[in-house]
């Protein structure tokens, strides 16, 4: 297991890139997810269709296929991004579909009577949404959104390998070959991912249980 101690810098650098990649992708995913959810509940049928198509496409395409399609396709339409940016866009667009569905389903758990009552007492659209619907919906979204964020950390490994971003997974792959000690190196990677995700799992479950309510 010396190989882990000898390459600690590489692991730590990889962890930092994985966290940074996941964080930026999650921000993009929430922005896209918010739009997708808004589209899907919009009064315009065309927007609803667009939202549904977006979700279906990304629920139907394996992440690696999307990453490679992006990698080979975008330069062809004149859009060239550095690998890290590409990975953020790939992960953000992919995860955006999940976030969109999580937001929509969270809003759907708020009984329609809540919105109707809010309108009946004369609240405006943004007041209905901001003061009545979202506060209730957000509590039920903690679990799904946390689960999506953890999946994103795992998925970042796929995007990074596809785009050669030097995250934890990519560096471990390189290290496994260069040191010729794949068992030691990848065991270290396993532990590193556990350190990244297990506290998160615990936190998400605790928060979700703390804030959920029974109707």
């Amino acid at each position: 297991m010396n190989v882990i101690a000898d390459n600690l810098d590489s692991y730590l650098g990889g962890i930092a890139v994985t966290l940074w990649l996941s964080a930026l992708s999650f921000v993009l995913a929430v922005a896209i997810g918010g739009m997708v959810a808004a589209f899907r509940v919009s009064p315009l049928r065309l927007l609803r269709t667009l939202g549904a198509v977006y979700v279906e496409v990304f629920f139907s395409l394996p992440l690696l296929v999307w990453a490679l399609l992006f990698f080979f396709g975008l330069p062809k339409v004149g859009l060239i991004y550095p690998p890290f940016t590409s990975a953020v866009i790939v992960l953000g667009t992919f995860t955006g579909a999940l976030v969109g569905e999580a937001l929509r389903s969270g809003i759907n758990t708020v009984p329609p009577g809540q919105g109707e009552a809010a309108r009946a007492v004369g609240l405006r659209f943004w007041q209905v949404l901001g003061l009545v619907v979202l506060p209730q919906a957000l509590r039920t979204m903690i679990g799904p959104l946390g689960s999506i964020l953890l999946a994103l950390v795992r998925n970042s490994a796929v995007a990074a390998i596809a785009m050669s971003v030097d995250d934890l997974m990519w560096r471990s792959d390189q290290l496994a070959t260069s040191t010729a000690q794949p068992v030691g190196v990848l065991t270290g990677t396993f532990v590193a991912y556990l350190i990244l995700t297990v506290p998160g799992t615990w936190l998400v479950n605790t928060l979700a249980r703390r804030y959920r309510f029974t109707r």
Binding site: L150, A157, M169, T177, V183, L186, F190, Y193, V198
Partner: peptide
């Protein structure tokens, strides 16, 4: 809690 790719790489390498 770990990426599936990592498990595949471990089995492969």
């Amino acid at each position: 809690a770990v990426p599936l790719v990592l498990l595949m790489f471990f089995a492969f390498l």
